[in-house]
Design a protein around this nucleic acid. Structure first.
Lengths: 83, 83
DNA sequence: CGGTATTATGCGATTTGCGGCATAATGATT
DNA sequence: AATCATTATGCCGCAAATCGCATAATACCG
């Protein structure tokens, strides 16, 4: 459900996965965000230098959010360790 | 422990909080990352257009990581709901 | 196969990030 | 208050992101 994003490549993959899961085209996302389809394409393919603001807009349009916390190896397996 | 970051401003606040918590100055962080103190200052103050790569470097230097998932209201309280 | 939607890519133009340096503003310590 | 550490700001220059448009490549469907 919640995915790790330590690089731009991972960010792109996550965005693409959720966009597809919601049945949206890059153009749809572009219309929602005011960005351009070409840019979204590049970002989904791991564009290293995308801006934070741009990413946030995309995430918001996809009803996603970003969280920041201490580094962990896995993401779901050791939730148990919290308790 | 893990904080929500829906905007560049929040990203900056989180970075600043963790930097201080680790007893580091902006200059210290700059040395670790190869970035400049001035840039870190601007990012901590919510620089909208910072690059994703730059943010990732800062997070890594602070032993933090970013995760992306569906939007939720609270962050810790309803972890219980997962089970 | 043919046509259409979707995604990827190249390019010129404009905007903007970031390096780099200087310095102002703020904060802490004595 | 004076000094020193830390953080914030302004400006220049270069590199790069984004725009905007065109179009190629690919996938989808009848």
């Amino acid at each position: 459900m919640t995915a790790l994003a330590r690089s731009a490549i991972q960010v792109g993959q996550i965005i693409q996965a959720h966009r597809k899961a919601q049945g949206l085209s890059q153009t749809d996302l572009a219309l929602r965000t005011g960005l351009r389809q070409e840019l979204i394409s590049r970002i989904e393919n791991g564009h290293e230098g995308a801006k934070v603001g741009t990413i946030c807009e995309l995430l918001a349009a996809l009803d996603l959010e970003m969280t920041i916390g201490p580094r962990t190896k896995s993401s779901a397996a050791d939730i148990r360790d919290i308790f």
